[in-house]
Simulated scan of single mutants.
Amino acid sequence: MSDLPDESSWVDAFLRHLHSERQLSPHTLQHYRRDLQKLAEQLQELQFAGWMSLNEKRLRQAIAMLHGNGLSGRSLHRLLSATRTFYHFLNREGWIDKNPALAVQAPKSGRRLPATLDPDQVSQLLTPPNDEPITLRDFAMMELIYSSGLRVSELVSLRIQMMDLGDASLRVIGKGQKVRVLPIGLPALNALKQWLVVRELWNKYHLPEVFLGQRGRPLTTRSVEQRLAHWGEYLGTQGRVYPHRLRHSFASHLLESSQDLRAVQELLGHSDISTTQIYTHLDFQHLMQVYEQSHPRARRKSRD
């Protein structure tokens, strides 16, 4: 094949494909590059001769070595997924005719349940201590994440024209450029209206983003994380407060009340319901705690 490019350029070509055709974020592309680089470095110890020569046996050896060096099953699952996608691209381009990662599975690891806040903790956290402009902004952000289940990336990219306060709804662009319409709860709606008055004073560059800093620039995901951590510490919330913890709390509380897994999946913007099903484990944990504390046959004896 005279037009076959050098193997050293295959990963870069793959990442360009993910960026242009699948429109993946720079953050996701970094994960793909890092995982493939990690695999290539491990394969070097096994006399790796290039992507074309990689076979299933050699890949299994590399995965076993990475696991032995402390890489978790979750991380290895992601690495293998990146490898399968990479070889699928190579097959599509006609540069190779095999996919050695198809039959290789990552070692199983314990499921890590997301951290949540209970309703009382949320109520305490979402009680603003004053009406200073920065407080109004921060509590509008927290209310909106908890009310609508936003990802922090969706929060910082939210624009004025994407909200309909009269209809108490908003549109967000999630992963894979998928658009979904979400409701805004009454406390979040009121907090937003208070913030939008202040926002006009800060918006000296006439920007469309909803959440701005005091200098009039859009907030970054990092600045949102820092502000939420500040309020969690200031208000004495148990455990660290971060955007995804509020999103997890939104999902867990909604599922506990509604038992409608499909609705929660739609609101969270999960493409696969198996991702949403982790919240059923949280709900079961809650039920088990109630059972252990309340059922007379479940109570453990205080002494043998």
Score class of each variant (00 low, 15 high):
140 A>F: 02
238 Q>V: 14
283 D>K: 12
287 L>E: 00
204 K>E: 14
187 P>T: 05
182 L>P: 00
199 R>S: 01
268 L>E: 08
81 S>I: 06
19 H>I: 15
16 R>Q: 13
6 D>W: 12
93 E>Y: 12
123 S>V: 12
303 R>L: 11
3 D>G: 11
291 Y>M: 04
119 P>Q: 12
243 P>L: 09
153 S>M: 07
128 P>Q: 11
171 R>T: 04
39 L>I: 09
114 P>K: 09
174 G>V: 04
17 H>F: 15
86 F>Q: 10
120 D>C: 12
22 R>W: 13
150 L>M: 01
121 Q>V: 12
109 S>A: 13
289 Q>V: 05
56 E>V: 10
178 K>D: 00
68 G>V: 08
31 H>V: 15
134 I>D: 14
138 D>R: 08
16 R>I: 13
21 E>C: 09
31 H>P: 13
94 G>R: 09
18 L>S: 07
181 V>C: 03
202 W>Q: 03
163 M>D: 11
128 P>F: 10
155 L>A: 03
200 E>R: 10
93 E>Q: 15
217 R>G: 11
295 H>K: 02
136 L>P: 03
230 H>R: 05
164 D>W: 02
227 R>A: 11
17 H>Y: 15
9 S>A: 14
180 R>G: 00
277 Q>L: 06
78 R>C: 05
239 G>T: 02
189 L>C: 05
173 I>G: 03
154 E>H: 00
288 M>K: 04
71 L>A: 07
46 L>S: 11
203 N>M: 06
36 L>C: 04
217 R>W: 10
72 S>L: 07
9 S>N: 09
291 Y>F: 07
107 P>G: 02
236 G>S: 04
32 Y>H: 12
68 G>T: 09
98 K>N: 11
113 L>Q: 04
229 A>Q: 13
253 H>P: 01
214 Q>A: 14
79 L>E: 05
104 V>T: 06
112 R>D: 06
195 W>T: 05
240 R>F: 03
231 W>M: 02
122 V>M: 10
136 L>G: 03
238 Q>Y: 09
261 L>W: 02
21 E>S: 11
194 Q>C: 10
34 R>Y: 15
16 R>V: 13
99 N>M: 03
227 R>K: 10
